[in-house]
């Protein structure tokens, strides 16, 4: 199997605080990785480093055979702006808070980066956007503004916006945490259909059943380390570590 992402020995400090102590995992092409864990465990920071919203302090990361940073002398070394940008175009990120551009229509939210970054023509970008909107069941919302949409619809637009750039791997940072259960289901359905199309993805989520159902591999993080990892059925149904058991049990109680 082809490896899409290989992360090794990632470390990150914010001031005195070690947020990530030693994170390593790989994602195979066409697979879905889910990352679970309590708040402050470093899940989001890991995604933010991979998608270049934060810099790594130490570690090595390869995406699609290219190196975003390499551990050298206890520090991660980046390759320079051009290479970083190109690698960045291979990754997409869906935020918890959608972060749509409020002054653009739904359509322009999806076409703007295609045109300005990928230099696609107007027709091509709009065709692609409409295809994605159809897929999201939102083709009638192309002319709407984000404020006119429900949270679930906004999140679907933001997924379409990320997919429009044809990322090799798509990351989700708690994509349903701002949504009520009904809207959460909308989004989970979309992610599930992407998984069925063999889109390579990594999902940070608190939806345990969902994570178990869609992912090929699962990681439980706490305190900046990976406490336990494995096949989702094993990790969720038969966790070996007490910390993992406690965490998963806390969801059953709730």
């Amino acid at each position: 199997m082809e490896t899409m992402l290989r992360l090794k020995g990632l470390k990150k400090n914010f001031g005195e605080n070690a947020i990530l102590r030693d994170i390593s995992f790989t994602i195979e092409k066409g697979n879905v990785l889910s990352i679970i864990g309590p708040s402050g465990s470093g899940k989001s920071t890991t995604l933010r480093i991979i998608t270049q919203l934060e810099k790594a302090d130490d570690g090595t990361l390869e995406i699609g055979g290219r190196t975003l940073f390499r551990s050298y002398d206890g520090k991660s070394v980046y390759p320079g702006i051009k290479e970083e940008r190109e690698i960045g175009l291979m990754t997409g990120l869906v935020f918890q808070s959608f972060n749509l551009f409020p002054h653009f229509t739904v359509l322009r939210n999806i076409t703007e980066a295609q045109r300005a970054v990928l230099r696609r023509g107007k027709d091509e970008a709009e065709y692609k956007a409409m295809e994605l909107l159809k897929k999201m069941g939102l083709e009638d919302k192309a002319k709407s503004y984000p404020y006119q949409l429900s949270g679930g619809q906004q999140q679907r637009v933001s997924i379409a916006r990320a997919l429009a750039l044809d990322p090799a791997i798509l990351f989700f940072d708690e994509p349903t945490s701002a949504l009520d259960p009904e809207l959460t289901r909308e989004i989970l359905k979309v992610i599930r259909s992407l998984a069925e199309e063999r889109m390579t993805m990594a999902v940070v989520t608190h939806e345990m059943n969902f994570a178990r159902a869609i992912s090929d591999y699962a990681i439980f993080m706490d305190g900046g380390v990976i406490v336990e990892e494995g096949k989702p059925d094993e990790l969720f149904l038969n966790p070996q570590m007490q910390r993992t058991r406690d965490f998963i049990a806390s969801f059953d109680e709730a």
Partner: peptide, 12 residues
């Protein structure tokens, strides 16, 4: 801040 971050991730 999410506006800057979304723009950065999209490659603007």
């Amino acid at each position: 801040r999410g506006q800057h971050e979304a723009a950065k991730v999209l490659g603007f």
